[in-house]
Simulated assay, not measured.
Amino acid sequence: MKKVSFAEFGGPEVLQLIDAEEPQAGPGQIRIAVRAAGVNPVDWRIREGQVLGAHPIELPSGVGLDAAGVVDEVGEDVEGIAVGDHVFGEGASTYAEFAVLSAWARMPEGLSFEEAAGYPSVVETALRILREVGVRSGQTLLVSGAAGGVGSAVLQIARDRGITVIGTAGAANQDYLRSLGALATTYDKGWVERVRQLGRVDAALDLAGSGVIRELVELTGDPQKVISIADLAAPELGVRFSGAAGSVPAALAEAADLISRGKLHIPIEKSYTLAEAAAAHIASRTGHTRGRRVLVI
Results as ranks from 00 to 15, higher is better:
Val226Thr: 05
Glu236Gly: 07
Ser228Gly: 09
Ile227Gln: 13
Asp231Pro: 02
Gln224Ile: 00
Ile227Trp: 06
Val226Gln: 05
Thr220Ala: 09
Ile227Ser: 07
Phe241Leu: 15
Val226Asn: 07
Gly238Ile: 01
Glu218Cys: 02
Asp231Gly: 03
Ala234Met: 09
Ala233Tyr: 05
Ala245Gly: 04
Ala234Tyr: 04
Gly246Lys: 07
Gly221Cys: 11
Ser242Pro: 13
Arg240Gln: 15
Ala234Asp: 07
Gly246Arg: 12
Ile229Pro: 04
Pro223Ile: 03
Gly238Asp: 03
Thr220Met: 05
Lys225Gly: 04
Ala234Arg: 06
Ile229Asn: 06
Ala245Asp: 10
Ala233Pro: 01
Gly246Ile: 08
Glu236Ile: 01
Gly221Met: 11
Ala244Gln: 14
Asp231Ile: 01
Val226Cys: 05
Ala245Val: 05
Leu232Met: 13
Arg240Gly: 01
Val226Ala: 06
Asp222Ile: 01
Pro223His: 10
Leu237Pro: 00
Val239Ile: 10
Leu219Glu: 12
Pro223Val: 05
Thr220Lys: 06
Leu237Trp: 05
Ile227Ala: 09
Ala244Pro: 03
Val226Phe: 03
Leu219Thr: 10
Thr220Glu: 09
Ala230Arg: 10
Ser228Pro: 07
Ala234His: 10
Leu219Ser: 12
Ala233Ser: 15
Arg240Tyr: 00
Gly243His: 04
Pro223Ala: 07
Ile229Tyr: 04
Leu219Trp: 11
Ala244Thr: 14
Asp222Val: 03
Val239Gln: 07
Asp231Glu: 14
Gly221Trp: 07
Leu219Gln: 10
Ala234Gln: 06
Asp222Leu: 03
Lys225Cys: 07
Ala244Cys: 05
Leu232Tyr: 09
Ala230Glu: 12
Arg240Trp: 00
Asp231Leu: 02
Arg240Phe: 00
Ser242Trp: 12
Pro235Cys: 01
Phe241Ser: 04
Leu219His: 11
Lys225Phe: 01
Val226Leu: 06
Leu219Gly: 12
Val239Lys: 09
Gln224Asp: 14
Lys225Gln: 14
Val239Cys: 06
Gly243Pro: 01
Ser242Phe: 08
Gly246Tyr: 08
Pro235His: 00
Gly243Cys: 06
Ala230Lys: 11
Gln224Lys: 15
Leu232Gly: 12
Val217His: 00
Ser242Met: 13
Val239Glu: 05
Asp231His: 02
Asp222Gly: 03
Ile227Glu: 11
Ser228Trp: 02
Glu218Asp: 15
Val239Asp: 08
Gly238Leu: 02
Ala234Lys: 08
Arg240Thr: 13
Asp222Tyr: 03
Ala230Ser: 15
Lys225Val: 01
Leu237Asn: 08
Ser228Phe: 02
Glu236Arg: 13
Leu237Val: 00
